[in-house]
Design a protein around this nucleic acid. Structure first.
Lengths: 365, 365
DNA sequence: CAATTTATGTAACTAATTCACGTATGTCGG
DNA sequence: CCGACATACGTGAATTAGTTACATAAATTG
């Protein structure tokens, strides 16, 4: 339902501003002539656009290059420090916050532990504290944060409310986006953790060249996030990818069976060393995982399946049997790769989400 | 990856042409002033756009309204008969062809039976014959067909080739789009039948107000089609929705169990009459269906689930237990409705697909 | 220091759109 | 039948945005 609106001349300027800004951000620093070449616009148009952007504070002129032939060209750079965004992961046992500039470069990380049994208000206070510390510690004024996004396990609806959480006590019903907006008095978004991790992988991780992505987050509990056309696909209720709840899929007990007596890391370690029992347990786990993953893969037929979360650190010991089982179950199984990011994936995805909001709303895409 | 291109003034005209054309097609016949009001453009702009469209043959002036106050306004109408599109369903036992004008109004239907065991070339010849008869019978010159789309069961890849078919003999590997293009010497597309049926429902059926739709086509075999954001989501290999192949889902045997000795219609009939055994069998069938449907619903979290195909004619006898089982399996089950169309759904979806191609490529959206 | 190279500044021109205002052409009421 | 009214048409000026062309400016090179 793309609302098609009529355009007057100002639409052109909007379009060309976006084209120019995108080219400038890609290039880092560029001259008018260079920008004209890559955008296909005339130098004069680029100049007019950059003037406007300069007045709005998004672009700054930098000293010209030296030592090159001809008249020195004026050079411009995107002011990535014009504003900032914050991404926060609110997990069961830890809060991870990231502060990033408008280029998405992370300036500062902050991490805090929380008790798995902490009440909702405690967890929220810890999240707020962590986010504020992250920003303050980097020496960035709080009012310069333009958007914040939070990721958490459970189902998060379109408005940013947690509509269902099984793992975190008192978490169901929390208006995450509404509350996070008060931290910095800015726009706020909230989404499911696996969805954000998927976004992070598509942004800077192993899913960069994929358009439709399924991200499976495995740890104590397994969840999944879905990207369609490179964009988040939360679904009607924000529940897309929540296939783990289906009994036949068996994600519920899979992790329990895997670890039983030892820690997960130990099991994977033993399997890597060739231990028969460990190998069998990992294979069994991979099979369980593959059932759910294949349901997702068959439903969506993605370009890529990314495996992330704590257990994904096991690498090929887990990936190889997963690929095998997946191939058995799917007509045409997607490529399977491991996540690039570790603990930062969710917060990084939250940064991307917040940044996307800024790009749309503020820079006016 | 929306390629963002710079715009010169002609971009404005393109945009406004689209806006105007869309408004005109919606209105049927309209005056310049009316079009100006609904599009938000000035009367002069609308006039200029309509002049161009008139020269290109897409718009025609019709006699002014009589009996209204003031100077009679010139009235314009979209020339829906400027071109035509053809949609064809190539099924196991029948070919259904539909000829439609540029408004998507179906001018003529044509139907032919084929043997389920017919070889690929026979089936293709039957399809071609049916399509040609449909067009010829309506008195439309063959060269006025601008695009044709074909739908069939099995997996159809992006290029329009059947990459896997289990039901139709010799069907795997057939370059459906390539061959269909020769029928009328025009652009040709091909897609999976369930996907096209979904498209039809979204276009004019029970899914008109939904954005993300899962369509489950049930008959001898069950298949599913997926719409994301109102658009076809075929997936990487055109296999999105092919969840029936997953053993755990049980769609393979579901239909077999249902019918066993009687015909499906008889079983549904008996269930409607209150027959215990029939009710149990329908419930069992609904449960099997729900497992696969819930996997799709959980993966995609759609706005709506549409049930179509032969067995969907059973109506509430089947829908009610399906809804019940789905609610048990899903965190938040989607609304479930029956398909609006009967046997025409797939051909109608093919018409929509072909029309979409024309709108994009020819009318230049 | 002149030649070369490259960027800037200015002016003329085109495309598309809007606004304002006068003109044309119907219906309605006496 | 004719004037009042309503509504649409036609024309011209103004605005915004973008492009091309060319003279001018400011560096490096030999």
């Amino acid at each position: 339902m793309t609302e098609l609106r009529p355009g007057d001349a100002s639409l052109l300027r909007k379009v060309n501003t976006q084209v120019t800004l995108r080219a400038l951000r890609r290039a880092g620093v560029a001259t008018l002539t260079q920008l004209g070449r890559v955008t296909g616009l005339s130098r004069q148009t680029v100049e007019a656009v950059l003037d406007e952007l300069g007045e709005r504070g998004y672009v700054r002129e930098v000293p010209p290059d030296e030592g090159v032939m001809g008249r020195p060209a004026r050079r411009f750079g995107f002011r990535a420090d014009a504003g900032y965004v914050v991404g926060v992961e609110i997990g069961a046992e830890a809060i991870v916050a990231a502060l990033a500039d408008l280029n998405g470069e992370v300036i500062a990380w902050e991490r805090a532990e929380v008790s798995g049994g902490a009440a909702a208000h405690e967890r929220l206070e810890a999240a707020e504290r962590t986010a504020l510390t992250c920003v303050d510690g980097a020496g960035v004024a709080r009012r310069r944060v333009w958007a914040v996004a939070a990721g958490t396990s459970g189902i998060v609806d379109r408005s940013g409310r947690v509509s269902l959480s099984i793992t975190l006590p008192g978490w169901t019903g929390v208006d995450l986006a509404g509350l996070a907006g008060r931290w910095f008095g800015c726009a706020a978004l909230a989404a499911n953790d696996a969805n954000l991790a998927a976004l992070a992988e598509h942004w800077r991780g192993s899913a960069q060249h994929a358009s439709d992505v399924v991200y499976v987050l495995i740890g104590h509990r397994a969840g999944a996030g879905v990207l369609i056309g490179g964009r988040l696909h939360p679904g009607r209720n924000g529940a897309a990818g929540e296939i783990g709840t289906l009994r036949q899929v068996g994600w519920e007990d899979a992790a329990r069976e895997l670890v039983r007596d030892a820690s997960a890391a130990e099991v994977f370690e033993a399997a890597l060393a060739g231990d028969r029992d460990a190998l069998r347990r990992v294979d069994r786990y991979a099979e369980n995982l593959a059932i759910g993953a294949s349901a997702l893969a068959l439903a969506i037929d993605p370009d890529l399946l990314v495996l992330g979360g704590g257990y994904a650190r096991a690498g090929d010991v887990l990936l190889e049997p997963l690929r095998r089982h997946l191939a058995e179950l799917c007509v045409s199984a997607p490529e399977v790769v491991a996540s690039t990011f570790g603990d930062e994936a969710v917060a990084l995805g939250a940064v991307r989400l917040a940044l996307g909001h800024v790009e749309r709303e503020v820079l006016g895409l």
